[in-house]
């Protein structure tokens, strides 16, 4: 979720800059960010589901099998 917030904030910055200089490129950039966020969310949530089913909890600290 925080990731979504961050992506949103970046897109906001882009759009503001585009509005300041009256260029369409910013909104195009925001579109790309949107597409990327969608893809990332779907894959990420699928992974969350997988982790939950394997580790039976959403505690990220339990995912430290690659320790050391």
């Amino acid at each position: 979720m925080s990731l979504e917030v961050m992506l949103n904030a970046a897109g906001l910055a882009f759009v503001v800059a585009g509005a300041r200089w009256h260029q369409a490129d910013a909104q195009v950039m925001f579109l790309f960010i949107l597409a990327m966020a969608a893809a990332e969310v779907s894959v990420g949530l699928a992974m969350v589901l997988e982790i939950y089913h394997r580790f039976k909890s959403l505690d990220v600290d339990k995912l430290s099998e690659m320790r050391g």
């Binding site: 990220v60 600290d61 995912l63 430290s64 690659m66 320790r67 050391g68």
Partner: peptide
Amino acid sequence: LSGTETGRVR
């Protein structure tokens, strides 16, 4: 450096 390989995602 091995301390950085904690395996914890956070």
